[in-house]
Amino acid sequence: MSAPTMNANAITADAPVQFYDLDEHAHPEGHSTMLGFWIYLMSDCLIFAILFACYAVLGGSYAAGPAPKDLFDLKLIALNTAMLLFSSITYGFAVLQMQQGKVKGVQIWLAVTALFGLAFLGIELYEFHHLIEIGATPQRSAFLSSFFTLVGTHGLHVTFGIIWLVTLMFQLSKHGLIAANKRRVMCLSMFWHFLDVVWIGVFTFVYLMGVLR
């Protein structure tokens, strides 16, 4: 990121023009982790965009099977959305505790975040179980295939987020708030809030628009 432009001092009459960078740069450990993780999230965003596009194209193909109106219980989805939103602000509290250097506070708020995440997953699995039980399986229609793929991929991301949360709590109890752990807390913060952003798209586009259709 250090300016890739030519060194202005090098361009004089006698010195040869150099197009490559000879300066030694300091590369502290993890100095590019935040940007790199952000770019990973952008690539994850593309995965979700493809699944949203699939759902947009196939979401109306019911194959004479059930439509969103018959299947979705908006009260359950509202509860699910609330769980994810609460988990977002509790993660924010964990970051605030980290800025004040309180390990215990970070761990407590991470644990609360994990509980909200588990509640979200539990409600989602209950919904999936109910759908499969009444015959609305992924094999039933193109609409249901794309629905389960999109919502299931989001649920898998939340699952891995919770595994990461637990891992981070162990790392914090072992090493405390060292620079590497602070970096991990901030990366998981991005990941967790990113999942909430994707969920905004899911509940609006899949559930609310589905019931309207």
């Binding site: 502290p28 993890g30 100095h31 982790t33 935040m34 939103l85 977002s88 602000i89 924010g92 509290f93 970051v95 605030l96 800025q99 620079a179 602070k182 970096r183 901030m186």
Partner: peptide
Amino acid sequence: EIEMPHASMRDYVIGF
């Protein structure tokens, strides 16, 4: 040495 965004209680409460 690592640049991190600074978060504040105000930001989180407004966002929530």
